[in-house]
Amino acid sequence: MGLLTNLRDSISRVTDGLFAADEPKRIGIYGPPNAGKTTLANRIARDWTGDAVGPESHIPHETRRARRKENVEIERNGRKVTIDIVDTPGVTTKVDYKEFLDHDMEKDDAVRRSREATEGVAEAMHWLREDVDGVIYVLDSTTDPFTQVNTMLIGIIESQDLPALILANKTDLPGSDVQQIANAFPQHETIPLSALEGDNMDEVYTKIAEYFG
């Protein structure tokens, strides 16, 4: 499976290079666990294709394998942008099965989920290096953005010269603080949104077209 994926990906990378203007850009949705990446991916996919990308959940690490939605056409101001959305597992430096035990999970299931989540992070990091043309970085605006993971990932994205859009998600929640995120990454534009409620998605799509078109 991995071999075929690799082969396909390397072929598509070559063709990407040859037909850069025509091929859709592959946009990775990155961020820490439970930031709302899958909710956003589903929102984008539903708005423009009618399909969903994957199941959403309050339990961290629901997404443990990168999922892709291809050929999502976004129209903005008469201009059409085609992207492939890659919803990635939440990136973290520690995975502990004990955090799943609070979610009514048996230990065996929690340990397995933990293992799969770790594999997912490894895969997401690999994709970041090899397979994405741009990044939508999703943060939960109710939590402190000054973390090792965020700093490191944003640093990697910048070092790759990848176009990056920072989204301050969960603005529908009471503790949301968009400014804190804007302060943490002043070199980037921060767009507030609630992927769950669909708030401010217009601006998100405009920025996606602008950054990745």
Binding site: K94, K107, S114, A122, R129
Partner: peptide
């Protein structure tokens, strides 16, 4: 088992 620490830079660099 079930508890992992990840070195993101290493994962990225490999």
């Amino acid at each position: 088992p079930g508890q992992y620490e990840l070195n993101l830079m290493e994962l990225y660099d490999r």
